[in-house]
Design a protein around this nucleic acid. Structure first.
Lengths: 211, 211
DNA sequence: GTCTATACACAGATAGAC
DNA sequence: GTCTATCTGTGTATAGAC
C-alpha cells in the first residue's frame, strides 16, 4: 500500500470505532482529527464532507467484513461452528468497549444519514443476510441444521436477534446477555441428534459450543 | 390535568417522536420548539438541560408504555395473542414514519446519553423483559406456549429479535420484514397442537421448542 | 410562561500559506 | 498533505423584558 494512503486508512479506522460507539451524528471531524493526531482541515483534505467519509467508511467496512466472512465460510467444520464464529465477531465488538455492529448502529441513525451512506448500510445488511442464508442452506443440506422456511427468512431472524441482542447487552453492560441469546437462536436451528433425545442434553451441548 | 402542564406534555410528545426518528444526538431544542410552535427558550423553561428533557421523556414513556402493556396482559385470550399485540405496538411505530422503539434507539445512543437517561433506558429494557417473561411463563403454564429454559431468558431472545427486526425493517423501508421475523419467533414458542400431525411434524416441533 | 436577545462552544467546511 | 486561520451555521444554555 502506498505511503500516501496511510493517513487515509487511519482516519477510516478511527472513524469506524467512533461510529460504532457514538453513532453517525455523535462523532465529529474534531474527534477524528484528535485521535489520528492531525488537524480537522487535514481530515477534510481526505474526505471533503461527512457524507464522503461515511460512504468511504462503509465501502471499506463492507470489504473488510466480507473478507472475514469469506474466510469463515471457507473454513472446515460444521455449519454450526461457522455460525458461532460469526457471533464471536459481534461479541468481540461488545467486549472491546461495547461497540455495536456498524449496520445496527447506522440503521438506528438512518434518518440522519446522507443518502449515499444509506445505500451502503442497506447493502451491508444484505451482505450479512446472504452470507447467513448460505450457511443455513448448506447446513440444512448436510442435515446439521434444521429450520422451517427459506434460508433467507431464517437468516433474517438470526441477524435480527443478534443485532437486537447487541443493544440489550450494551445497555446492561453485560456481554453474556448477547452470548445467551446467540446460544439460543443457534440451538433453535440445530438439527436434533439422529437418535437419543432429551431437550436438556442438547441445550447443554449448545452452551459449550457457543459460550 | 392542569392547563399549565399542557405545553410540557406537547414538548414531551414531540421529543418522543424526534428521538425515535433521529436519536438522542440527532434532535435539538430548535427542532422541538419548531414543532411545538414555541421558542427554544420556552423549552428550556420546562426542561433546563437536554439531560432533564431526556430523563423526563423516559419516565413518561415508561409510564405510558407500562399502562399499555398492563392492558394487554389483562386482556382475555391466549398468550400468543398477547405476544402478537405486543409486536403490533412495534409494527405501528415502523408504519408511522419508521420510528424505532425508544429503548432500541437509546441503546444505540448509549455512549452519548446523560447518565440519568441511561438508567431509565436500562429500566425500560427490564420492564419489557419482565412483561414478556410473565406472558411466557403463564402461557407455558396454560400449555399454550412451549420453550426451553427460563421465561426470562426466552423473553430476552424475543425482545432482541424484535428490536433487531425493527432495525432491519427500517433500513429496508419494509415493515413486512419486521412482521416476518415476529411471526417466526412467536411460532417458535408456540406449543404444538395436542393431536394432528403431518410428516414435517418432528421438524416443526423441534423448531418450536426454542426460538 | 413565553418572548427577544445573546453568550459561547462546536459543527462542518473553505482559503491559502508552507 | 498538513497546517493556521477563518467562515457560517447550529448546538445548548442563560438573562432579562413582557
Amino acid at each position: 500500500m502506498p505511503a500516501q494512503d496511510e493517513t487515509r486508512d487511519r482516519i477510516l479506522e478511527v472513524t469506524r470505532r467512533l461510529v460504532q460507539s457514538k453513532g453517525f451524528s455523535g462523532f465529529s471531524y474534531a474527534d477524528v482529527a484528535a485521535e489520528v493526531g492531525i488537524r480537522k482541515a487535514s481530515v477534510h483534505h481526505h474526505f471533503p464532507t461527512k457524507g464522503d467519509l461515511g460512504e468511504a467508511l462503509m465501502v471499506r467496512y463492507r470489504r473488510d467484513f466480507g473478507e472475514i466472512l469469506a474466510r469463515i465460510r471457507a473454513s472446515k467444520g460444521e455449519a454450526r461452528s461457522r455460525l458461532r464464529a460469526y457471533a464471536v465477531l459481534f461479541a468481540d465488538l461488545l467486549r472491546d468497549d461495547y461497540r455495536l455492529c456498524m449496520c445496527g448502529m447506522l440503521a438506528a441513525d438512518f434518518d440522519v444519514l446522507p443518502p449515499s451512506v444509506r445505500g451502503e448500510v442497506r447493502g451491508f445488511f444484505d451482505d450479512n443476510e446472504e452470507w447467513l442464508a448460505d450457511v443455513l442452506a448448506s447446513g440444512r443440506k448436510q442435515q446439521e441444521l434444521s429450520f422451517v422456511g427459506s434460508p433467507r427468512e431464517q437468516a433474517r431472524v438470526l441477524l435480527s436477534a443478534l443485532e437486537g441482542a447487541m443493544l440489550v447487552a450494551r445497555s446492561h453492560g453485560d456481554v453474556s446477555l448477547f452470548e445467551g441469546v446467540a446460544q439460543r437462536v443457534f440451538h433453535a436451528v440445530t438439527a436434533p441428534p439422529r437418535r437419543a433425545v432429551r431437550a436438556p442434553v442438547s441445550l447443554r451441548r449448545a452452551s459449550r459450543r457457543v459460550a
